[in-house]
Amino acid sequence: MWSLLITSNTQWVFFSTMMLGIAAGVIGCLSYWKRQNLMSDALSHAALPGVVIAFLLIGEKNLLVLVIGAAVSAIIGAFSIQWITTWSRISEDAAMGMILAVFYGLGIMLLTIANRSFGGNQSGLDSFIYGQAASMVKSDVMTMLVLAFVVLLVVFLAYKEWKIFLFDPQFAKGIGLSIRGMSILYTSVLVIAIVIGIQAVGVILMAALLIIPAVSARYWTQSFRMMLMLSALFGGVSGLFGTLISATGKSLPTGPFIVVVAAAIFIISLILGKEQGVLLHYFQLRMQRKKANAIGTKERSIT
């Protein structure tokens, strides 16, 4: 089974899922502080109809074209959510839930049509649901790497702008930062991170790769910069090891394994994390209790 690792194509696949994890980890931190974790879930589901429509239009599985289709569809999803929230009394979470289900349903419907008209499962589009990294070819890998790099560059260059945009948007506007521009940039990088991940991780589980590394990183640091780096590390490790494990068996889906690795990192962080981790919390509470009891006994003995 390890002979799989030697072929150069597989190495590139490992590298690209690692880069995907890094990009998703970083973007996940932005979503975390924008308090929009569910948004990534809604948008990744909303990407599915776009993938299938793009495939139906060109009739072949070219990742770049499918990614563009996915992006268009996810952006339509994002606009719909915003439009519903602004112009009706429906709250944002309800709007997200609706868009998620409606777009995903539409995607599955189109997928059935695509599969039927191209005979059986010839289209190979099913891999976009649970993710199939092994099915990626070199040009797919290149598309992913370039886009992941763009996303990382955008976050790095505008690091201080992201920080103030997330912490205090009103103040940011007051000193001349365009909140509209930042929101558009945010949605763009979020959509890019999602669409480059859908082939490797799948539309259903892509949100997990955006959410879990960020919440895991939160258990280790009190600095935004450090949180970005840790989240990138956790995402990268999840991407790499998830793909490694799924490569050991024949045609195992990649997405679930990546998410399982990410979840394992989360559980470790939850228990051992130095910022409000469960274990530390328990011991600190016990120590405080002891201290309080000791003072109590002392006072009782005095009176």
Binding site: L157, E161, F167, I175, Q222, F224, M227
Partner: peptide
């Protein structure tokens, strides 16, 4: 604002200078 945001006091005050520092 969300005071849970992971940053320190000096950093928040520095935000007042972002306009002067220049974007990016």
């Amino acid at each position: 604002v969300d005071w849970d945001f992971p940053t320190n006091a000096l950093d928040v005050v520095t935000m007042g200078l972002y306009g002067e520092i220049g974007w990016f």
